[in-house]
Design a protein around this nucleic acid. Structure first.
Lengths: 249, 249
DNA sequence: TAGTGGTCTAGACCACATT
DNA sequence: ATGTGGTCTAGACCACTAC
């Protein structure tokens, strides 16, 4: 680890000040992107990393804690430091803010309606920064909880990131875990745009509701640790017994 | 500051382990609740607080940084530590996630439609934990951006926390700043439940849209630093040119 | 018992804002 | 020039987990 961070006064036109722990943080993030450690494997402890990077253990600690806050790493006292994993359980709480008005949240089961390679719709290409000639995998699903279909999803994945996806014999419910383990793309951040819309004839039919009933519509773009935009998702969902929950502070 | 935190082994049935910095954090939070420092006033620096609490400066630092992350405090290098304030600018970004599909976010202007004391609706009493005989102030507003009315709000405030509110000659746009400066209630945390609904006849009229057009409906409960539930708010808003934005990570 | 992360301290120095 | 928060280091010890 290079310690020029504090020599800005000797290079006033150089890059702006970056604290050492930030440099360590970026470096570790880069090592994760480069797959230096396997999923589920324990990272070296603070002293070993400190030695490798030629900084103090305290600086490594600060960097690792920052990565933990950003949900990149998970640390367990007495055990070690691990790369954060998309399990079914944390999928529910981290990226699925749809909760029933009454009772416990549960993960909806999924049924694939359609899976194919398509010309990329203009809006999708725009939001995923795809070129005109790049194709996408199109996956449509309907999802149900307690026997009631409540969610319809149209999912678009750039072909370049998901080679062979259309030939998958089985698409699991928890897609982000699947992306992470099978395709080595770990969703790090999502952005949802939420609107209210009226149910189309087709959606109404699939959901078992009336045309022009109100639906929540989310448009999501998902980004990986290394900044790749790997998923565009448009979700319509009933909100008569569910709501989208947002806590701010 | 009492340092029994690390003597748990001597009181195995005592309270569970609390690190010193957490104790300092809670203590400072309590001091803020008790109005020890005025809004806008600078807090004592780390060394002075450390001396007062009989802990090291590093421990105070950790506590203050935790409070900063929780948006309770704001720290400015070279200046000092302050109690976080609800300004017009941060109101926009912290508690107003409604953004236009195109262009910059701006704060909608507000017009009061109604202001009175009312019997508390059952749902409001439930969510704000009010007793049956406690009354609320009811405030209805319509809000517009660029000449277009896009938001209707029904706001309910417990009378006990907002004495004299109905006689206010002027209700400003940024309510949370108003609550904080005039009534000394600082909103710390909100919880929004979002649904899609159809516009009622009345809402449609006020918004200048058709009955049964789709609207986003948020139901919000706002909580202060000391855990008081001070506001119930039901918002309906057009989402044809706006969306509710949620970033997860 | 050994090894991990978590806490606490003390001290030196840097970056930033104000006077 | 002064005072604030921010960074970095080094070392001691505590709490938790696994073996």
């Amino acid at each position: 680890m290079n310690k020029t961070a504090f020599k800005n006064k000797f290079s006033p036109n150089g890059p702006s000040f970056q604290p050492l722990y930030k440099q360590v943080e970026d470096h570790v993030r880069q090592l994760i992107i480069e797959q230096r450690w396997k999923l589920g494997e324990v990272l070296p402890n603070e002293f070993k990393l400190a030695e490798e990077f030629n900084v103090s253990q305290g600086t490594v600690r600060k960097a690792l804690n920052c990565l933990t806050e950003a949900n990149v790493l998970e640390r367990k006292q007495g055990v070690g430091t691990f790369i954060s994993e998309h399990t079914e359980k944390n999928a529910l709480y981290r990226f699925f803010p749809l909760v029933p008005d009454e009772g416990e949240t549960e993960l909806p089961s999924s049924e694939v309606l359609s899976l194919s390679i398509q010309i990329t719709p203009k809006k999708v290409a725009e939001d995923l920064h795809l070129k005109a000639n790049e194709e996408v995998i199109y996956l449509a699903r309907k999802r149900e909880v307690k026997g009631e279909i409540c969610i319809l999803e149209d999912i678009y994945l750039p072909v370049k990131y998901f080679k062979g996806f259309v030939d998958e014999p089985e698409i699991p419910d928890t897609l982000y875990h699947f992306y992470q383990t099978k395709y080595l793309h770990s969703v790090q951040e999502t952005s949802d745009k939420i609107k209210a819309v009226l149910a189309s004839t087709e959606d109404a039919k699939l959901l078992g509701i009336n045309e022009n009933d109100p639906l929540l519509m989310f448009t999501r773009v998902a980004k990986t640790l290394d900044g790749k935009l790997i998923e565009y998702r448009q979700t319509r969902c009933r909100s008569d017994n569910y709501h989208y929950l947002v806590n701010l502070n």
